Computed example of a mutant assay.
Amino acid sequence: MSAEEQIGTRAPSSVPRRVTAGVLLILTIAAGLLVHGALPDAAATDIAGDALYAVAAYLAVVLIAPRLPPVAAGAIAAAWCTAVELFQLTGLPLAWGAQLPPVMLVLGTVFDARDLVVYLATIALAAALDVGIRAILHRR
């Protein structure tokens, strides 16, 4: 056993974190598809969809890079969501979505500043929860 392992400073295995992120990502995508497909189009469902998209972005980052600290994972997810939202200003996601509707689920359609607020707030909450959960698990 290494000295790091004996004093508990070694980074935990990334496998459980990756598996957890993968399962949660699948559940988040399912919830997002449910919101998109089964609920009426309203401001509340739009906000819920945006929040689920942001959580999915965060979980995708954790799935790809499970050893990243939550703040770094959040920064990458926030950059992705912001880039996608700003890309909508080009009109390309709307045009591409008209040709292939699933594109709209990933790239959206039209720019809405409220989406940016929802993305950033949700990602901050996800990262904070991740920090808290990691702290609890680290204490065990």
Rank of each mutant, 00 (worst) to 15 (best):
A43I: 15
V19D: 08
P66H: 09
R114N: 07
E4W: 13
I136W: 01
A54L: 05
L107P: 08
V118C: 04
G108W: 01
L137W: 02
I7M: 12
A77D: 04
L33E: 11
D50T: 03
V110T: 09
E5V: 12
P69I: 14
R18W: 11
L94Q: 02
Y119T: 00
G32C: 12
A121N: 08
V61R: 06
L25I: 12
P70Y: 06
A21S: 15
V84T: 03
G132S: 05
V103S: 04
A51W: 03
S14N: 07
L105E: 05
L107D: 02
R10D: 13
V61N: 12
G108K: 01
W96S: 03
P66R: 13
P70Q: 08
L89G: 04
T109Y: 04
S2W: 14
M1R: 12
A31Q: 06
I76S: 10
P70W: 07
L86Q: 04
D41I: 09
L86C: 06
P101Y: 09
A128Y: 09
W80L: 14
L89A: 05
Y58M: 13
R139T: 01
V23Q: 12
R139L: 01
P16C: 15
P102V: 10
A31L: 14
L39A: 06
I133Q: 11
A95H: 03
R67I: 05
R134P: 01
G8V: 14
L105Y: 06
R140Q: 13
V61E: 08
E5S: 10
A56K: 08
S14L: 13
A3C: 13
S13C: 07
D115A: 06
A57H: 04
G8R: 12
G37R: 14
A135I: 10
A72D: 08
A75D: 05
A44C: 03
V23S: 12
R17V: 15
R134L: 10
G8T: 11
P102A: 05
M104H: 07
I133V: 11
A124Q: 07
F87E: 03
L92E: 05
T82P: 00
A42E: 09
A54R: 00
V117N: 03
W80G: 02
P70C: 03
I29S: 15
L52I: 13
P101W: 11
P102R: 03
M104A: 14
G32W: 02
L33S: 10
L129E: 10
L105Q: 06
L105T: 05
G74M: 05
R134Y: 07
M104V: 07
A113N: 01
G37L: 13
A21K: 06
L120A: 07
R140I: 13
M1N: 12
I76V: 14
G8F: 15
L86P: 02
E4N: 15
V110F: 00
S13G: 00
T90F: 05
P16T: 14
A44K: 02
W80C: 06
C81A: 09
E5W: 09
R67M: 04
L116D: 02
P40G: 01
R140V: 15
P40H: 00
A121G: 11
R114S: 10
Y58V: 08
